[in-house]
Amino acid sequence: MKPTRTRLAFAAALLFIGLPLLLFARAPVPSRTLLKDSLSILTILAVALLLGQFFLARTIPAVQRAFKPPRVQALHRWIGYGAITVLLLHPFLIVLPRYFEPGVRPLDALVTMLTSFDTLGVLLGLACWLLLLLLALTSHLRMRLIKRFRISYRAWRGFHALLAAGFTGLALWHAIELGRHTGWLLGGFFALLAIAGIALLARLYLPERHRPAPQAEGLHI
């Protein structure tokens, strides 16, 4: 059991931390100050870990078998809250280095950035930010929402999956449109992770009649 866990954890770390860091380093853009590059790395890791959430949502039986489901759920919750916090702060982190440089004031830069409505990338970014806020709030208040609207937990989970898939599509588009490091390499990698994750999620939420009939172990009809 233990080697499987170790192997899975190592593969996850490699896929969602190691590879994004490598692709960040290989991006054909000039490096900047330590603070700016650190903020870029933080954002890229948050995106990668958020994409990794698709694989912690009961989509891979091996993960559920190797780790106990409550542990997977806890990991899903804490990685989600952490990555969402970083991405909700993303607009503010972009202007943070302006506090330490001459030129435009951070608040002016933020206002200019958020009001550039002629640019598709900015509009996508605003839409993503709102979707992410909704995702965070509906996740945190899920029990209250289930009681208030008298819906099943399964219905909430479907809504959560739909919101996550919608956010991922828009966020990827925003990153490819405006991302400094999101060239074809890192953008392609993120797109692959997103497609794989959403496909696994879609498979999980397919209506029962489309799924193969469960078979007893060792019984082949």
């Binding site: 280095p97 950035m113 405006l178 400094r180």
Partner: peptide
């Protein structure tokens, strides 16, 4: 240009 770019896009 670099100092007034709100998203620090100019190198």
């Amino acid at each position: 240009c670099r100092l007034y770019c709100p998203v620090d896009a100019i190198e």
